[in-house]
Write a protein that binds this DNA or RNA. Structure first.
Lengths: 226, 226
DNA sequence: AGCCTCAAGATCGCATACAATCACCGAGCC
DNA sequence: GGCTCGGTGATTGTATGCGATCTTGAGGCT
């Protein structure tokens, strides 16, 4: 059995990423104690860990609150993400194995299918798209990150890949942007098969920066409607 | 008064960076309790934080041990550091204030003086050089990182700037390498005064990569003399 | 009316006690 | 003789109690 700390961490993290807590909302330790079914000690440990990962901010004697991020910060985060994931893709290009490439292909197909289903009138639309696309997309990026074989790089990525997820940004993508994203995935796979480090890095940078512009769009999709 | 957690964290971190603990050495919580003068709870918090920063590794039910890093990992860490600090220098070039530039100049002078003193026969040599140079150098890099005004970037930097310090790498620098390092500092300041983002990033990358080659030198300066 | 003071309640930080787990070691068995 | 299997000690993980600090609201003062 895993430790209670880990379970508390996972649960709180999931709740935040699912949007069950509003950005800026205060997280009281006793509340989380009830939710997690463990004592305050492991809850505190999980909270501190999340704080270092940037999902919550803790101020001494004031407790923790869900991180709230502004437009400017989001743009900066995407710039960092382009740098980190680009680097990872470059390393992955020379280190990745054929089995992982096969998995990436399957995930790319899954994402394409998800988009096709949503575009046909039968599909449920944005919600269903999100449900199918997002997990595959996350897995896609995770495989690349793991292939880079650098725990420190992975730790850095953790600092920037999850924040945008809080905002559940997918729904804002236009059709053209989604298509471009799918093409990036295929191009990335091609770069991996060619073992071309520069190509892979470049495509990944494009992929992330494109996503950035789909998300930090002035006046559209504000986090906190006012 | 600061919290006991913070003090425990600072103390353990200092001890590791000073080399009081050998890489790979196991850190028992009760030992640290005695050293820090606080209870196990804040010691544990500090340990977990250090684990995320990569200075120690903790395995469940097995406690913490000082991170031991190999040559390959070190090269990878320097590559990451070049990326991170290069990015930071680029941002800093457009954001830094004149007061910070003045501080950088003072620190550059201090480092030059330290090298000059060590090179003259009066100076105590490598040990004294280390004592004067290293703090000024750390402060130099810290100011640039702060000027970038990005807490996430700072968090990433924390993952890679401290590891090389465990190995106390300065003593291995040749005279030529030290001179080059000093020139990099001056060039960086020039790039800041010119507000040239690309120039600053490029110089910082050179600075870090040069340091990398001074450290990960095959067969020279092994961490654990055997 | 607005601001400051201050006390009560709530919450966090730390210390300590207890429970769970692991490593080490010796005895027994194949 | 080597291997496996419990027993024991040490160490970590978790829960809880107490003191410290912050927030909040009411009351009085300017």
């Amino acid at each position: 059995m895993s430790t209670a700390s880990a379970r508390a961490y996972d649960l709180i993290r999931s709740l935040i990423l699912e949007g069950r807590f509003a950005p800026g909302e205060r997280l009281k330790e006793e509340e989380l104690t009830d939710l997690c079914g463990v004592s305050r000690t492991p809850v505190r440990e999980g909270l501190r860990r999340l704080a270092i990962e940037g999902l919550v901010v803790v101020t001494p004697h004031q407790g923790a609150q869900v991180a709230a991020i502004g437009e400017g910060e989001l743009a900066e985060i995407y710039a960092l993400r382009a740098m980190i994931e680009g680097h990872a893709a470059g390393r992955a290009a020379v280190l990745i194995g054929d089995d992982d490439i096969a998995k990436l292909k399957a995930l790319a197909s899954e994402m394409e299918a998800a988009v096709a289903a949503a575009n046909s009138d039968l599909g449920g639309g944005a919600a269903e798209l999100n449900a199918r696309f997002t997990p595959a997309n996350s897995e896609f990026h995770r495989i690349i990150l793991d292939a880079a074989m650098s725990p420190r790089l992975a730790a850095m990525a953790a600092l920037v890949v999850e924040i945008p997820l809080i905002l559940r940004t997918l729904a804002r993508y236009s059709d053209a942007e989604l298509m471009r994203s799918l093409q990036h995935h295929r191009e990335l796979i091609a770069a991996f098969e060619a073992r071309d480090e520069d190509w892979a890095r470049s495509v990944m940078r494009s992929h992330v920066l494109a996503a950035s512009h789909a998300v930090v769009r002035p006046g559209v999709g504000r986090v906190q409607p006012d």
